[in-house]
Nucleic acid binder design. Sequence first.
DNA 1: CTGAAAGCGCTTACAG
DNA 2: CTGAAAGCGCTTACAG
Lengths: 352, 352
Amino acid sequence: MYFCVTFTYNKMEKKKVTLQDIADALKLTRSAVSKALNDHPKMSQKTKEAVQKMASELNYKPNQLAAALRNGKSKLIGVIVPAANITFFSSVIRGLEESVNNAGYSVILTQSHDSVEKEKEIINTLIESRVDGVVAALGLNTKDYSHFEKLKDEQIPLVLFDRIIKNFGVGTVQIDDFKGAYDAVSHLIENGCKRIAHLGGHQHLVLYRNRLDGYKAALKDHGITYQPELVNLSDLHHEDGRNAMQKMLDLENAPDGVFCSSDYAAVGSLQVAREKGKNVPIDFKIVGFSNEPFTSYLEPDISSVDQSSVIMGHKSGELILSAVTCSDTEFSPQNVVLNPTLMIRKSSKLFS
Amino acid sequence: MYFCVTFTYNKMEKKKVTLQDIADALKLTRSAVSKALNDHPKMSQKTKEAVQKMASELNYKPNQLAAALRNGKSKLIGVIVPAANITFFSSVIRGLEESVNNAGYSVILTQSHDSVEKEKEIINTLIESRVDGVVAALGLNTKDYSHFEKLKDEQIPLVLFDRIIKNFGVGTVQIDDFKGAYDAVSHLIENGCKRIAHLGGHQHLVLYRNRLDGYKAALKDHGITYQPELVNLSDLHHEDGRNAMQKMLDLENAPDGVFCSSDYAAVGSLQVAREKGKNVPIDFKIVGFSNEPFTSYLEPDISSVDQSSVIMGHKSGELILSAVTCSDTEFSPQNVVLNPTLMIRKSSKLFS
DNA sequence: CTGAAAGCGCTTACAG
DNA sequence: CTGAAAGCGCTTACAG
């Protein structure tokens, strides 16, 4: 599978330079040096400058571990996502890392792989690492929240995004899934669809419930009767989209459009519709969810609900930072709801 | 842009339980408790059990910060990527996190945004965080490596992946880019291409040099003369692919196929070829690089060189762990070269 | 098999 | 404006 080229180098121990070394060099005490370095108000400018100079000369690197232990805060934010290589999550991570990094915090990244067991382990590890806060999206199968309660017990602030827990008393960041779905389905109706299918996600997750509700509401408001056989719930992977569409397009009264709660399911739908001889968008229209970059590369490109994932990350970062840095005994976690944007592309337009 | 719902909860201070608390409860000393918890050989089974029991009763969580300070190792691995939301990087991160996590290490994720300045800052932060090792892919503009030298000065092991530095005396993980390119171009030739273009990356990065070399070698071995005007070097984004292809297809002697060092550039090429009335793959054939998931969703789906990114992450994890846990004074960093796999799809096949 | 002691590198309340 | 001292929570070499 691979081959290796190796060579050796000498790994010799070298003493790390500490506050004491700077103090010695300058005939000061550790405390003075510490204060100078931390820009303490009651320190003469002269001493500060001398210390700064010596620190960089000696190539001093403060030991954050020691500072963290002493201060009782690690400047570490733990992040839990199901998998780091799903575009939506990696985009949130991107935004999150940017925003907390700006404030001098680092991100510890963990993956639950949608396993509750793993989620529990991670939370223990994060507590032991003494992270100052945790930002998380629930695993697909997480229905019991006791491990998240533990964070509360330890007084570690928590912010949930996208896959959130309702009324859990923690900060949350989500998009308005109801509105995203409502807009998408209304758009399909306005472009001539009469029978719209919905490929949705598991209903124990709030966001998928909200999307289904938005779908139903849009139908109702446009005088279309809700048909349970046009709704399929799954993990929403590419294959799930294919399977669902295979069945639905074989219905006697097949749908003429579909609103998918995931772009992967939407691509699957597009492929199957084509295989069954449908012309998309003329015979069959599609809207996906998440606005994954690839949706715009397809032919026809697929309409999708953008959930501004990088911004969701930024916002999650802001929330966790405000919780972490808040010194009040009374703290009010915010629940942020971002506005979704329907990106209209060829897959759903009447005249393309 | 968003609205907020807020409410308050009471943030009261609670004492964390420490070794001392367990010791007090059991009339033991901290040292005894520490040894019991760390499964020290010279501890009676009875004590160990009693300590374990009390620890979980008191809901004890060891303070990793304190342990790290004392042990001189943080069990933290720093990761530097240009951006976390590029599929290739997020996949490597996925694999890396999995493998180091299995060994009890956590990942600190950072992003350089292809900025040398940022890269320098990150390395300082990681040193201050006392990470036990660093895994990194170079930024696109990083030509000076002095900040990576710093890691050596601090005796922090480094593993570079994909965008590596040659002969830097550190562990590296890459795919055989030469072979990947060679195979891709040979495949195009075998499927009838006579004039093959190459959209390549900046040549100060070894991997892009290797791919260009592979391209040239394949041409040569098949008796085709290398034509500089058919090579375009860029950042390889979607737009770069479009721009390059716009120009090339207007050449008097336009290419009949293209090997792109990125899938994003490949999609751009596909779009432009279509816009110019080419039938892909009949008139014009395309092979990309990285095997991004979306390449298989397109119509025609795009052939691409798979660089087994998750495995690259696993391998990087293994290398950094072996460097971190190695106690020898002599350590030999490995240079791992993974085998690329050409994924043949419709965009490059003679008879599709 | 168990305990007393020292120390990792920092910071801060206190005293001068 | 500066210093001496204590302590964050752990671990380990040493003594018994």
